[in-house]
Design a protein around this nucleic acid. Sequence first.
DNA 1: CATCTGACAGACT
DNA 2: CAGTCTGCCAGAT
Length: 103
Amino acid sequence: MDNPDSFPMRVYQIVAAIPEGCVTTYGEVARLAGSPRAARQVGGVLKRLPEGSQLPWHRVVNRHGAISLTGPDLQRQRQALLSEGVQVSGSGQIDLARYRWRY
DNA sequence: CATCTGACAGACT
DNA sequence: CAGTCTGCCAGAT
């Protein structure tokens, strides 16, 4: 297991705190995790989430408010967001000004 | 141990 | 507005 201060663990705790019906960006998660320029690693952590994780990873999008995944993965994230009231265009575009979570 | 590769972002050209 | 470069850091090769 990772020690509590590891980057992955900090990311887990932050993402777990994002309220339902809201979204935030990879960069924001990285910033809150204490590594303002490690946005890319946030994606890396979420990508390797253990099977069956209850972490709301779908509430994390890129700085443009767009879903960064492609193909079927994009549709899964889109559906997850739609089901909790977040409007998402067919291409995966979200209105950040409206749904962005402010810490 | 050296390199490469990203679910990104910000600064710069 | 579209490329290009760099920081960051875990995993894979």
